[in-house]
């Protein structure tokens, strides 16, 4: 199978600025006038979210990414969806991405459910005709038919997330990125989502970031464990999760 995602020696640094004028000085020096000089980058002012990471994901794989908060999981997803760019190394991605990174990012509270489906669909890269065709399926999957003409600020948070997830599922991406979104919504809807992802998994590539290890074990064919910007383990879900749990136990006993 061909690679759909490949990270080759990827390093991502974020600029940390000190004080009010720190940003002014740094950005004028490095960004605004584009005189970006690698040697001059003060190492004290940056933190490395990812350090020289390499991995590949093949078509049809369902890969879970686990690790503690701040380990770099979300940065990996952001690099894949071209929201941010690496400082070093290359990120290669093939195919349409359904970036389902945070719920409701593209939804507007003042607009109706119907308007939001069109808006969110467009944000996820769907054509209007495509949305029209799938409109009923989206509404039914989200179970919001009764409320479709209400502004979604009147929606419950569960309805919000169901709407968002449904549009994303039906936008039919080649690669689906899921970042801890199932935390919202009731158990019933979570199950439904996992089922959809399951049925996806055969043909699509899914990247799944979560702290829900049970869900990861259930749907992933491979797990990558990240810690402090480095890949610690990459392989069989049971082994990697076991290793992660073991390691967390040791770490917490150290504290």
């Amino acid at each position: 199978m061909e690679n759909v995602i490949a990270f080759r020696g990827v390093t991502k640094k974020y600029l940390i600025t000190k004080g009010k004028h720190g940003l002014l000085i740094d950005t004028i020096g490095e960004n605004l006038f584009g005189v970006f000089n690698r040697k001059k980058t003060h190492s004290g002012n940056t933190i490395s979210a990812l350090k020289n990471i390499s991995f590949e994901i093949k078509k049809g794989e369902t890969v879970g990414i686990i690790g503690r908060n701040g380990a770099g999981k979300s940065t990996i997803l952001k690099l894949i969806s071209k929201i941010t760019y690496p400082n070093r190394g290359r990120v290669e991605v093939k195919g349409r991405i359904g970036a389902f990174i945070e719920l409701g990012a593209g939804l507007h509270p003042e607009l109706t459910g119907r308007e939001n489906i069109y808006l969110y669909g467009a944000i996820l890269g769907m054509k209007k005709k495509e949305i029209e065709k799938k409109f009923d399926a989206i509404v039914d999957f989200a179970e919001i038919r009764k409320f479709i003409n209400l502004p979604i600020k009147k929606f419950s948070s569960g309805m919000y997330s169901r709407l968002g997830f449904s549009v994303c599922v039906f936008c039919d991406p080649d690669i689906l990125l899921v970042d801890e979104v199932l935390a919202v919504g009731d158990v019933y809807f979570q199950k439904k989502c996992l089922n959809v992802m399951h049925s996806f998994a055969k043909e699509k590539t899914i990247l799944f970031v979560s702290h829900d290890l049970a869900a990861i074990r259930k749907i992933c064919s491979r797990v990558i464990y990240v810690e402090r910007g480095k890949i610690i383990k990459n392989g069989n879900p049971r082994q990697v999760i076991g290793f992660y749990l073991e390691r967390s136990k040791n770490n917490s006993s150290e504290l």
Partner: peptide, 20 residues
């Protein structure tokens, strides 16, 4: 390529501005 999104966001801006 993204013209439909531009259209959708323009509509959103017009609609939202005068809602309520």
């Amino acid at each position: 390529e993204f013209r439909e999104l531009l259209w959708a966001l323009t509509l959103r801006e017009i609609k939202v501005r005068y809602k309520q």
